[in-house]
Every structure is written in structure tokens, then in C-alpha cells.
Design a protein around this nucleic acid. Structure first.
Length: 575
RNA sequence: CGGGGUGUAGCUCAGCUUGGCUAGAGCGCCUGGUUUGGGACCAGGAGGCCGCUAGUUCGAAUCUAGUCACCCCGACCA
């Protein structure tokens, strides 16, 4: 294509509302423009990259035996009510009422629709397994869209759904998808890590997340140096910390007056103690029940772990009036001493059970208690008392005796074993060999196409702009004609450009009547991996300059050898 | 939804505290000329309901109230 005819509105200055590098560069390189918070128009360059990514995904999915279909973005609310996910998704779901008063959902994902489809078409185990996928826009009414394409309200997702008649079959497809994802991300030129993940509101029994490690990631991944363990922080297990032993007798509990000192930080300041010596007491409500979580002051409750221990269901931090009602004190003064008989369940983190002595709320407004000894001053055992791992991993923790390390990452893909959660509710059943009706086992597999785009830029950029991995670059080669007004130079550039096109190389001809400097800056900014500079100077010796975006120096190549050299470089960049 | 912030030229921003001449700069854009291999220079020019609405005032970009949009931090979530 000819640069002079394409809308590539590059900008020099950093747009004020773009925080992270990929967002800034997508805007600066003229690949994308915002239309409203969390919604973007992709211009030619951005769209071409997205198309390259989708072709890679499509090729690999097809090679893995999945079949491409297209499901509607407009879905009846009724289906979501059948699985109850209208409640689970809640406000995150975009929905609208049509002129007949029917409620519709703008697809945030498609388990319901695909399972509804399967329910109508599957009768026999002989039809299974199969794997359906689509690449289509998805909608989520994010409470806070941010980071450009990384968290947007409309995005492109590849979502696949497999149906099975046995756990072995599901396991096999899960493995195939897992391997396929590795191939896809590798072809996109991304460094990725695979971590164990939570299933969240998707439900199901097992899940892995594909994450691109980078600073601007919103997810935290936890791993051991030797690679034997990696998990999302939502899930990462920690070894219980060793029970400390007291060097001396701990004096009896002592109530201290702490007026208006309700936060951990304020209490530490006031009593000259440290967060790790505090016992944090959080009250959660599950229906009408109150469930207490105890963690150390410097730890955070991991609500996923907590929910599992608490027996599942919808569990939320209790509203203030329930806290007041239960503890008889203002929020900020709850403590475990004497509390267990007033609540339905008390779940104590291992690290609290291991404490020798701590400070905690007195269940009395404006009072805390010092010298609280777990096991002495409140029970660690009992009918409604559980000691478990309910906190987030943090610096210093180990798992299987190995030190845990932390890294930020962008989630670009996730695979789930769903089991029968959807097939049961939506009646996707089949008759097995013994004429017994059974619900299909399902798996689902998602990839965020736009997130691949953004994370590729996060990983590949320098002060001048983007450095595209060749397989997802909008163009593989840019032919920069620096002396546009010189007929001979223009013709040489045109010839090279035509030759590249004939050999199926994605080439962009910069035929604009600009000075050389401007063209180079634009070429660098939009990040085309290979640049061929055609100019009067080198053409006099029958040469052009061929330069890789990621290297600072180019090389002289004879005009007639250009195609051969470019092909070599493309192969090199692909490997 | 809570906390904080910002809306002035296509972009980045000044001006607002303390109301008052024709509302500014840099970049970008248009015309002419000189330049021409890493964002050139000179001259001329176009481009603004100062987010919107109401109010205070002789007078509002500036003060007040409301409203909308956007951004950041947090809770929620892939």
C-alpha cells in the first residue's frame, strides 16, 4: 500500500490520557483512536495487526481440530437467568431493553449461547467430542476501563467451547488447547508464562492462565525460581509459617484505650507496634450468616481461598450495621476474643495461629487488647473454627519449601475445565452407550486478541516507538523513498515495492513528499520490522539500505539482491 | 460506587489565585520561497460557543451552583 493514500495520523506528543507505553504508542503511531471511555476505533495499521493475530489464532485453532462458528453478540437475558450468571456478572454486563420490552445482553462471553446450541443438537455420545470457536467482539461494562485495549468495554475475543462425554476426552482437548495456546503466543512473538488460575464466576474444576510478564500488568503471578510452581495470586498457595515459641511468659491480656484509632496503620502508630503483630478481624456475610476471617495485620484476605473454605456461595464483606450488631463496637474494633460464639464460623489463617502474641480489637468501641495469645485467649479449635490458608501470598512466603517470587503480568488467555455447570442448567445432554442420559462435560478457552496487540508493544518498544514482532506487524517491510521528486529514485523504490508485493511480502511504500527525517521517524514509530531506504546517495552505487527496526545500523544491499536479502531477514526474524 | 484531578485551537499546555484591552505559546495544518539521508528555515495565513446550563456582576475563560465527559487511586472482575 502507498503511505500517501493511507490514514496514519502519527503524533509527536504523548496523549494526556494514556498512561502506559502500549496505549501511548498505539495512539501516537496512528493505529487507534478513542471514541469514548473503553471503546476504540482501529485504523488501518492497528486493524492489520489485529487481523494478523486473528489469522494466527484461526490457523492454530483449525489445526487443533476446532471449528469456527459465529454466534450473536445480542443475546437474550433469559439464557443468562437460566445459569444465574446475570447475577454473577451483575453490573459488568451490558444490557438493553428492546422495543418489545425484552431484555438483551451484549455478549460478555458465550457459554450460555453455545450450550443452548448444543442442547438442541446433541443427542448421542457418538456426536462427541467437538470444539466450537468464534472470534468476535465482546462487551463488558467495566467499572473502570483503563490502559487502552488492556481493559476496554468492547474488545475482540477468541472463545472456544468443547463438549465431551468423558473426563478423559475433556482432559485430552484441554491439553490440545493448552499446547495450541503455546504455539499461538509463540508465533505472536510473545514471552509468556503459564500459571494455575482460579475459575472465578466461570465455574469449573481446573484452569490455567497465559500471562505476559510486564510492569503494567494488572495481574500478579507468583512463582518459584526453579519453575516448579507458578500461579495467579488469586490462587497461589503458601506454606503455613512455623509456630513461633515464646521466650518468656506472656502476661495476661490488657485492654488499652485507643480513641478513634481504627485502622491497622493508626493502631500501630498509636501503640508503637508493627502490622505483623496485629490480628486483623474481618466480618463477612453469607446470606444471613456472619463468617469471620482472621489474618495478620500485614496480610490480605484472599477472598477466593476464603470462599472455598467458607463453603462457597456469595460472600461479601459485611455491611457496617451487621458489624456493629455482631461486635457491639464501631467498625475498626473487632477482635477474635470471645467472638466465636456470636458468629456462625471463624476462619483463622495459619499465620495467625502461628503467632505467639498479638494486638487486636476489643469488640468495644475505642478499645484494643494487647498480649492476646492465640489458643489461650481465643480458641483455635472448635465446631465452627477452622484454621486454613486464606490469605494472599506475599514477600517471604514459601511453597513446598521454596521461596515465592512475584511478577506483574497481563492475562492474554485462559483455559478452563468447566465440567457440567452449563450443560446441566441448559440441558445439553446426550445418551451414552448404555442408554443413560448424561450432561456434556465442557471446556472453554479464551484469548484476548487486543491484549495480544497491547502486550506485544509493552514488550517490544524503544524511545523511538514500536518494534513489532514480524508475524503481527501491520507490514513486514517499509520502502522509504527519500528523494521523492527524483524520478529515478522514485522508480527504483516503486520497482522494489512491486517486486516485494509479487512475492507475497507485506510492503508499505512511503511515497510521501516529505523530508527523509520525518519519514524515518514515522517508520520507527509505527515499528515496521524491516526498512528499505531508497535514496539518491546509495542508488548512485546501485545500492539500497536495508535496516532492521530493532538494530541501529543498516546494511548496503545491491538493488538486484534486495528481495533475496529481505526474504532472509524475514526468515531470521521469524525464527 | 467512594476519594482525587482535569476540561481553553487538531495535539501538548499557559492564562483562572486577585473578573476588565483583540484569549496566548509550542507542535501540527494551509500558501509562497529557500532547503532536502534522522521530525529544516523565512514570510504570510486558517483555525476557539474557554465542556454544557443557570446564576452573581456594568462586565465572566476567570467567581458560585448544577450538570456532562475524561483521567488517576480504591473496592469488583477476565
Amino acid at each position: 500500500m502507498r503511505y500517501s493514500r493511507i490514514l496514519i495520523p502519527t503524533i509527536k506528543e504523548v496523549p494526556a490520557d494514556a498512561e502506559i507505553i502500549s496505549h501511548q504508542l498505539l495512539l501516537r503511531a496512528g493505529m487507534m483512536r478513542k471514541i469514548a471511555s473503553g471503546t476504540y476505533t482501529y485504523l488501518l495499521l492497528g486493524w492489520r495487526s489485529l487481523l494478523k493475530i486473528t489469522s494466527i489464532v484461526r490457523e492454530e485453532m483449525n489445526a487443533a481440530g476446532a471449528q469456527e462458528i459465529m454466534m450473536p453478540s445480542l443475546q437474550p437475558m433469559e439464557l443468562w437467568q437460566q445459569t444465574g450468571r446475570n447475577v454473577d456478572y451483575g453490573e459488568t454486563m451490558c444490557h438493553l431493553t428492546d422495543r418489545h420490552g425484552r431484555e438483551n445482553v451484549l455478549a460478555p462471553t458465550a457459554e450460555e449461547v453455545v450450550t443452548f446450541l448444543a442442547a438442541g443438537e446433541i443427542n448421542s455420545y457418538k456426536q462427541l467430542p467437538f470444539n466450537l470457536y468464534q472470534i468476535s467482539p465482546k462487551y463488558r461494562d467495566e467499572f473502570r476501563p483503563r490502559f487502552g485495549p488492556i481493559r476496554s468495554r468492547e474488545f475482540i475475543m477468541k472463545d472456544a467451547y468443547s463438549f465431551h462425554s468423558s473426563p478423559e476426552s475433556l482432559e485430552e482437548t484441554y491439553r490440545v488447547m493448552y499446547d495450541t495456546y503455546c504455539k499461538i503466543f509463540a508465533r505472536c512473538g510473545l514471552e509468556y508464562v503459564i500459571v494455575e488460575a482460579e475459575t472465578g464466576e466461570m465455574g469449573g474444576s481446573g484452569s490455567h492462565q497465559f500471562t505476559i510478564p510486564c510492569e503494567s500488568g494488572e495481574d500478579t503471578i507468583v512463582y518459584t525460581q526453579d519453575g516448579s510452581y507458578a500461579a495467579n495470586i488469586e490462587r497461589a498457595s503458601v506454606d503455613p509459617v512455623a509456630k513461633q515459641t515464646a521466650n518468656e511468659e506472656i502476661p495476661a491480656m490488657e485492654e488499652v484505650h485507643t480513641p478513634n484509632v481504627g485502622t491497622i496503620e493508626a493502631v500501630c502508630d498509636f501503640l508503637k507496634t508493627k502490622p505483623e503483630q496485629m490480628i486483623k478481624t474481618l466480618l463477612y456475610s453469607k446470606d444471613d450468616k456472619i463468617i469471620v476471617a482472621l489474618v495478620r495485620g500485614d496480610h490480605e484476605v484472599n477472598e477466593e481461598k476464603f470462599k472455598i473454605v467458607a463453603g462457597g456461595g456469595k460472600i461479601e464483606l459485611a455491611p457496617w450495621f451487621k458489624i456493629v450488631d455482631t461486635t457491639d463496637a464501631k467498625v475498626g474494633f473487632a477482635g477474635p476474643v470471645g467472638l466465636s460464639k456470636h458468629v456462625d464460623k471463624m476462619i483463622i489463617d495459619h499465620s495467625v495461629a502461628a503467632m505467639v502474641v498479638g494486638v487486636t480489637g476489643a469488640n468495644k468501641t475505642d478499645y484494643h487488647i494487647k498480649n492476646v495469645v492465640p489458643g489461650r485467649d481465643f480458641q483455635l479449635e472448635g465446631d465452627n473454627i477452622i484454621v486454613a490458608d486464606i490469605r494472599n501470598a506475599c514477600e517471604g512466603d514459601t511453597y513446598n519449601g521454596k521461596k515465592l517470587l512475584f511478577k506483574k503480568g497481563i492475562e492474554v488467555g485462559q483455559v478452563f475445565k468447566l465440567g457440567t455447570k452449563y450443560s446441566e442448567k441448559l440441558n445439553a445432554k446426550y445418551l451414552d452407550e448404555n442408554n443413560v442420559e448424561k450432561a456434556c462435560l465442557m471446556g472453554c478457552y479464551g484469548i484476548g486478541i487486543n491484549r495480544i496487540l497491547a502486550s506485544a508493544i509493552e514488550l517490544n518498544n524503544d524511545k523511538d516507538g514500536i518494534i513489532w514482532p514480524i508475524n503481527i506487524a501491520p507490514f513486514e517491510v517499509i520502502v522509504t523513498c527519500v528523494n521523492h521528486d527524483d524520478e529515478e529514485v522514485a522508480k527504483a523504490a516503486e520497482d522494489i515495492y512491486q517486486k516485494l508485493l509479487k512475492n507475497n511480502i507485506d510492503a508499505l511504500l512511503d511515497d510521501r513528499p516529505l523530508r527523509a527525517g520525518g519519514k524515518f521517524k514515522d517508520a520507527d514509530l509505527i515499528g515496521i520490522p524491516i526498512r528499505i531506504t531508497v535514496g539518491k546517495r546509495s542508488l548512485a552505487d546501485g545500492n539500497v539500505e536495508v535496516k532492521l527496526r530493532r538494530e541501529s545500523e543498516g546494511e548496503k544491499v545491491k538493488v538486484e539482491n534486495t528481495l533475496v536479502r529481505v526474504n532472509e531477514l524475514i526468515n531470521k526474524l521469524r525464527s
